[in-house]
Design a protein around this nucleic acid. Structure first.
Lengths: 336, 336
DNA sequence: CTGTTAGCGCCTTCAT
DNA sequence: ATGAAGGCGCTAACAG
């Protein structure tokens, strides 16, 4: 059931060049111990026949695939596609290809994907975990898959992420500067962003009564911007506000939704409502007024995560200790 | 040099279950001719040992990888990541994984990626070609790689795309409705969008002097929004305009750049400048005023392209004829 | 229904 | 420096 295709193999090259297959292999893998003459002869035929080594065979024989699995929790959020852009770029430069999967924030799917990826013999995994404290981590360790988690900090596994708590603190401080009297966090209250946000406000003497949570759903994560409008309207209608409202959202996608909601509700931004997003995706600069946001250094995250992963891959045996790189977030002040 | 990992093989399962390896293979591939008893026994051990078949070996032996290569020309443009989202989703459902690459619009890179992907034994390729009439098509055919091109229509290869010419016509018609006197296309004048745009304007009696081209660079494609501002400013400063200006851009990314440029230049949209984008990415709804755009049915494109590709993969031998699916674009009227 | 056998294309000792 | 040979894990005839 062989597909029709001009599959040139090392064997053929070997015959044409009048050497053994082993020599061809050596040439292709830049082994030093090959005479220049033969090397030349082999390379000629490689070019002539347009030979390309079969990765499956290579993977099988060498037990290394030069493949990185990438699992993202939300491919509809530009934040993750921005990070994906960098991952692809860096991986390609380093001679790896990437298998991309979307877990859609579903933990079952996440686990299935990881097994799948393992079966595909990936050398390593880059994963943006969906839930905090995902049980996925267990299977990851059980299966001895070299993995770096991006986006979040977890015990017992290599991670590269920003401090979400600090991000929350930055947002709180920003809103406080702007003389905001009521504070709302759009997202889950279990989120570290909220912890940092709330704690800082509390520390600065804000009454707990003035700190609210909106859009606190299990599936808050996903980019249904429409929901922003309804959520905000409902919030405003049911809460007694004391002055300027400050909204901090888990993601820029929701911040933009808030912006639209304000427009529709006739609320002036930033005069009546101040908004701080998270991730600092390109969208922030495209809207009017431009969105203030907590920036994640996506390029650094991608680079550092891959650096660690590549090192793990080269390293033999079980990994020694874990790396936890927690980058500082940065607030980008714009018009909201 | 075997990496430390609990690699369970079919051989082990066979031993434990007291059957031959072939039987294990049959069970795993749902071959009908296996006694229920043995099947049961095998599956038990598969579960118990957490067995996962090795795809490299499978690929090598069966000459089928269940892998689709995806080559995108610009992973920074949301249009392509939106399409990627659907490709990933549909491919996964169908039991395929995707290898994602960014050609960055570079034809040399494009060719290299395709070779790479072929070496990786992909069953098929989905590719958004960078240049019109890319010589890439030649190597594609020479190498007998099953390929579907998205985004553009080419001779001699399966394609799924919208009619860019028609898109240009729609844009022209829209601007004409709005009593625009000067027309500018932001992009390359070799683009079919421009052809449709210009021809329709000409047909409707617009003087060629009133049809302009801006941002006509070889690398216009790439999302450097900054450039929009300078380009527009320069255009406005150097051209005598007769009334309302209508701008049609090759991509929404540039349309948004135009929007920003207008803001900075104090030009009112849509009163003084009317803008029509292309692709209808989510961004169009996020900006204010919301952007009028020519919509591409990304989900349909992804689905149809994969449908064709899967059919080609199942089909033996050389492909018979080519499918050219040209979908109609649609104008989404919004505030510009 | 089931086991045996022969590869798939490449890497890697082991001799020479 | 080079070739022969065994094996990576799985599939797919071929016998029975």
């Amino acid at each position: 059931m062989k597909a029709y295709s001009n599959t040139v193999t090392m064997k053929e090259i070997a015959q044409k060049a009048g050497v053994s297959q082993a020599t061809v292999s050596r040439v292709l893998n830049n082994h030093p111990s090959v005479s220049p003459a033969k090397r030349q002869r082999v390379m000629e035929w490689v070019r002539k026949l347009n030979f390309e080594p079969n990765y499956s065979a290579k993977t099988l024989a060498a037990n290394s695939s030069q493949l990185i699995g990438v699992v993202l929790p939300d491919m509809q959020n530009p934040y993750f596609t921005e990070i994906l852009y960098h991952i692809e770029r860096i991986a390609t430069i380093s001679g790896y290809s990437i298998l991309v999967c979307n877990s859609n924030g579903d933990m079952q799917k996440e686990k299935a994907l990881i097994r799948q990826l393992k079966a595909r013999q990936v050398d390593g995994l880059l994963i943006g975990l969906a839930n905090t404290r995902s049980e996925v981590l267990e299977s990851l360790k059980r299966d001895h898959i070299k993995t770096v988690v991006i986006t979040q900090d977890y015990e017992g596994i290599d991670c590269v992420a920003i401090s979400h708590t600090e991000g929350g603190t930055l947002a709180a401080a920003y809103l406080l500067e702007g003389d905001v009297s009521d504070f709302a966090f759009f997202g889950q209250d279990s989120d570290d962003k909220f912890v940092g946000f709330r704690d800082h406000l509390l520390e600065q003497g804000v009454s707990p009564d003035h700190i609210h949570t909106i859009g606190n759903h299990e599936d808050w994560y996903f980019s249904t911007m429409k929901r922003g409008y309804h959520t905000l309207r409902q919030f405003i209608q049911t809460n007694e506000l004391h002055g300027r409202l400050g909204v901090f959202t888990v993601s820029d996608m929701y911040a933009v939704a808030m912006l639209q909601a304000c427009r529709e509700l006739g609320l002036k931004v930033p005069e009546e409502v101040s908004i701080v997003g998270f991730d600092n995706i390109f969208l922030c600069e495209a809207v009017d007024p431009q969105l203030t946001s907590i920036a994640q250094p996506v390029e650094d995250i991608a680079r550092l995560a891959l650096d660690i992963l590549f090192r793990r891959i080269e390293e033999k045996g079980e990994p020694q200790g874990h790396q936890h790189i927690i980058l500082p977030p940065q607030i980008i002040r714009r018009g909201t």
